[in-house]
Amino acid sequence: MTIKKQTNIDYKSLVAELGISIEELREIVEKKKNYIPSPHQQVSFVQILDEYINNLNRLGESNKRTTTTLVTYLNFLNRVKTFVIENHPHLKIYQLNEEIILTILEKSSPRKEAKLSINTVNKYMAIIRNLYKFALEKGYLEKDLRYKFSLTSVSTLPRYLNEDQIENVLKGALQKTYGYRKRAMLMFLLGTGCRVSELTNIRVSDFNVHEDLIFIRKGKGNKDRYIPIFKEVKTTVLHYLKLSGVHKWSPDLKGYLFCQDEGLVREKKVLERSVQKLVRDLFDSVDLGLDFTVHSFRHTFAVMCLKSGIKKHHLMQMMGHDDPKTTSIYTQLIPQDLKEEVMKHYPFPFEELLNDLI
């Protein structure tokens, strides 16, 4: 016996409202039954991820991506790939969501008791958004799905160290194993504004003591630049070189400035993650929160330069900024120093002053 499905839909009114016939409505329903997913729904997420990774490698080979950027992207994307293969092997490109990425990031916490910073989460979300931009441009998506991976707004004002914090951190570095090297690295960061990736790639010959210039090899943005060697940095680094086996600087020395295999060859450079761990340990020891990172040395350099009277366009060149607005951020930090200075020298109660005036 045929079972008729009861429905409350008034088909005559429906087709009249749509301006179509009953036959046309039936045709639409039949097409829905035999619906074939569009191409973007048939392509697996892992397939597109592999294509994106291959594209990143090509960009790296053509020097359109820095080594540091490439390593960051590939490390994270390979973790995503492993997680998806193990937990969602049939995942399609449109099915990935923020919850899956956050689950992956939760497994990447640097310490069990610590959470990833907002900036770190934003960095990884931005990588996924770039992947989806690639998928859209390649025609794997019918619409832009980057909105699914939101970025959290954070304060744009960078963190920098005051004089007491600098002194305590440098003293702490000196107490570590190979403290002379670790203190020299931090002094270098403070006195040059270099990124940690730039510090680890500098060679002895780049630190030109005759010209008092440091040659920075293709930092962020793939641009070479020169930074003047300030007296304190020069004294500290030359002392470190002497202790580590280089008694006289020479442009013929090709090894790394900061290295693990000390002497004249110097082929084993200090790793970025080692510098980051050192700085985190030192910051923890003086109660500086997670908002302070190794990049805070770069911010500190910028603020000290502006306070000493260096012009913004000169600082922009030393920092390797492409946009003047990036350099201008540091000018917003100086009013805080002004407030602290005023409160230090004029500790009188404001209410008493007002009463005297009245």
Rank of each mutant, 00 (worst) to 15 (best):
K31P: 01
K32C: 13
K32A: 14
K33N: 15
I36A: 06
I36C: 03
I36K: 13
P37H: 11
S38E: 15
Q41G: 02
Q42P: 01
S44M: 07
F45A: 03
F45H: 06
F45G: 00
Q47Y: 09
D50N: 15
I53P: 02
N54D: 12
N54G: 08
L59E: 05
G60I: 00
E61R: 05
S62D: 08
R65M: 14
R65F: 07
R65P: 06
R65V: 10
T67N: 13
T67G: 15
T68M: 10
T69M: 07
T69R: 05
L70G: 05
T72R: 08
Y73E: 03
N75Y: 11
L77R: 04
L77V: 08
N78A: 02
R79T: 08
R79V: 07
K81F: 08
K81G: 05
T82K: 15
T82Q: 13
F83D: 08
V84P: 00
E86I: 05
E86C: 06
N87A: 04
H88E: 10
H88M: 05
H90P: 00
L91E: 03
K92A: 09
I93D: 02
Y94F: 09
Q95M: 11
L96P: 03
E98L: 10
E99W: 05
E99P: 02
I100L: 08
I100G: 03
I100M: 08
I101F: 03
I101P: 00
L102C: 04
L102R: 13
L102V: 03
E106H: 13
K107P: 02
S109M: 12
R111D: 09
K112H: 11
K112I: 11
K115V: 04
L116P: 00
L116N: 11
L116M: 11
S117W: 02
N119D: 05
V121Y: 01
V121E: 04
V121P: 00
K123M: 13
K123Y: 09
Y124G: 05
A126Q: 12
I127G: 00
I127V: 10
I128L: 09
I128M: 11
N130M: 07
L131W: 02
K133G: 10
K138Q: 13
E142H: 11
E142F: 10
K143G: 04
K143M: 08
K143A: 09
L145E: 03
Y147P: 01
K148Q: 09
S150C: 04
L151Q: 10
L151W: 04
S153G: 05
S153H: 07
T156G: 12
L157D: 11
L157M: 09
R159A: 09
R159Q: 12
R159S: 10
N162P: 03
E163F: 14
